[in-house]
Design a protein around this nucleic acid. Structure first.
Length: 491
RNA sequence: GCGCCAGUAGCUCAGUUGGAUAGAGCAACGGACUUCUAAUCCGUAGGUCAGGGGUUCGAAUCCCUUCUGGCGUGCCA
């Protein structure tokens, strides 16, 4: 390889393209050293683009839908949902910045079995609250929030349901609770900084006949059969270990049947790529969902599922279990109260999705340097402080070629890498890379700060450095915005 | 049993898709505030990349295998 490299280098005419020097190194690498003036183009461009800096047209308007959180509206969003929210939103933002046309969606499971269970739980609490003897379903929702909801209902609507048909009673209570939960979920996610383009209700798939239609499509393609009183999907035909029930013996559709209809619906709405962010407890669903796409005659690769490993919550050195069933879990709201939105979002995005996340509440709660989000935010605050105190009304004519210190060059170099980093992170659907980038950029700025004074140096150099500082501000802010973390001007 | 994810410094984790001497943050140790925010910086120390085979010029990264932990393997969602 070295000899080949030498032959190539001898024939390269690099000077014309801004390359200062070409050399062979190591086992046969061809190193091209850019002309120092190459970096001088960076800062003016960043200042000119401002909020658009980092964005690119890489995705060429390709239509992508990101579906995330989609927590059952039978409870409040918990830590796992919070990770999904931070992750999904950041992935969507990354794709948007990389030039894709992105739509964020929340799938509301307002139909099916769990709603039935929800109704039973509500009914039991309702009766109990009104002094009746009612048995609480074993696999019901044990959370205190169910009782709270019921109390609120009684306060508003009274005890009229005592005389209602049980089935209708459950339906009324479930509908009431569903809307209440849903509005809490919206509020919590809004507070968390997440905005959805669409909230999609599972129930509409039944109302519009989409589920039946989907089943017909599958049937016509030879993937459906009847057995033991149930209707099955021949999943083994597309490589699954066993077939799956679509319609139960009791005539109701399974979650899987509705989910296939939902994904067909997404395709029909014109999304070219579908990205779902799911918890690890759903990973068994991935292969059969992709297989079902194929069975529908769609390209399975259009569906991508980002699986995130579960969150373990530690407080006071003790691990807390999270379960809606037992009702013992930390809600997204409680998390935001405890550690704030910025720390929470940074913590969730910081780690790659396929690592387990041990969320240390005590650490996130602490406002000390142990907390990595402060390191990055502090860099931004320092930047703003310099700009605020500079007293220089206009440094637009600053000459950035005066920036020759190693710390200045390294900082500029890293600033220049934002657009490429965003594209790579978007391609890989890995927003944690942006945290790594932000942390490195902040570190380079802190080093620069320690070795190069800005204010009070001779005027021409000061103006050049103010430009660099301003470009750092823009870059830090744009990265933080991308992951949903604020960029404070003072700390 | 089978499948997915993980195993990298004392701890928590990165590692740009197979490249050059494996990097950060905490924790430890030693330095730096008359000057733009010390929530910072500079330095020192810390490694059998879980173990073992293999692929090749070259492996933390790919393949096989063993071990450990988590999750899944429902006519639940």
């Amino acid at each position: 390889p070295r000899k080949i490299a030498e032959i190539l280098v001898a024939r390269l005419e690099a000077k014309a393209s801004g390359v200062q020097e070409v050399s062979v190194a190591g086992p046969g690498f061809i190193n091209m050293k850019l002309d120092p003036s190459w970096l001088d183009r960076v800062i003016p461009e960043v200042l000119a683009q401002d909020e658009a800096y980092g964005r690119s047209g890489y995705g060429a308007g390709h239509r992508v839908q990101v579906e995330f959180v989609s927590a059952n509206p039978t409870g409040l969003p918990h830590m796992g949902n919070a990770r999904g929210a931070a992750l999904g939103d950041a992935i969507a933002s990354l794709l948007d910045a990389a030039g894709y046309q992105v739509s964020r969606e929340y799938y509301i499971n307002d139909a099916g079995n769990q709603i039935e269970k929800f109704g039973q739980s509500l009914e039991a609490r309702y009766l109990q609250e009104l002094g009746q003897d009612a048995e609480f379903p074993e696999d019901g929702y044990h959370g205190q929030d169910v009782t709270d909801t019921v109390r609120g209902y009684i306060e508003k609507e009274g005890d009229g349901l005592l005389t209602e048909e049980p089935e209708k009673r459950r339906l009324i209570l479930a509908e009431y609770a569903l809307e209440e939960k849903l509005s809490h979920i919206r509020e919590a996610l809004t507070r968390f900084g997440v905005r959805y383009d669409n909230w999609f209700r599972e129930s509409t798939l039944y109302e519009t006949g989409a589920v039946e239609h989907t089943l017909e499509v599958l049937r016509s393609r030879g993937y459906v059969y009847e057995s033991e009183g149930a209707t099955w999907l021949a999943a083994t035909k597309f490589g699954e270990e066993k077939d799956e029930v679509m319609i139960r013996q009791n005539g109701t559709y399974t979650y899987f049947a509705a989910d296939i209809a939902y994904h067909l619906n997404k395709i029909e709405r014109g999304f070219e790529t579908l990205i779902n962010v799911w918890g690890a407890d759903h990973h068994g669903h991935v292969a059969r969902m992709k297989g079902a796409m194929g069975a529908l005659g769609q390209d399975p690769d259009r569906l991508e599922v980002v699986i995130m490993q579960l969150v373990r919550l530690f407080s006071g050195g003790e691990m807390l279990r999270m379960s809606k069933r037992t009702g013992r879990f930390v809600t997204l709201d409680e998390l935001m109260d405890e550690v704030g939105v910025d720390a929470a979002r940074y913590f969730f995005v910081m780690r790659s999705a396929d690592s387990h996340l041990d969320f240390d509440m005590d650490l996130a709660r602490s406002k000390t340097s142990d907390n990595p989000v402060f390191y990055v935010q502090y860099a931004h605050a320092r930047v703003c402080s310099i700009l605020r105190q500079s007293g220089v009304p206009d440094y637009g004519d600053g000459d950035v070629s005066l920036l020759t210190e190693p710390a200045e060059r390294e900082l500029t170099d890293r600033i220049a890498r934002l657009p490429g980093t965003i594209v790579l992170a978007a391609q890989a659907r890995e927003p944690h890379r942006m945290c790594t980038y932000a942390h490195e950029l902040a570190g380079l700025f802190h080093s620069f700060y320690a070795s190069c004074r800005v204010l009070g140096v001779e005027p021409e150099l000061m103006k050049a450095r103010l430009k660099l500082v301003d470009a750092t501000r823009i870059t830090l802010r744009n990265v933080l915005t991308l992951i949903g973390v604020s960029a404070p001007e003072k700390m």
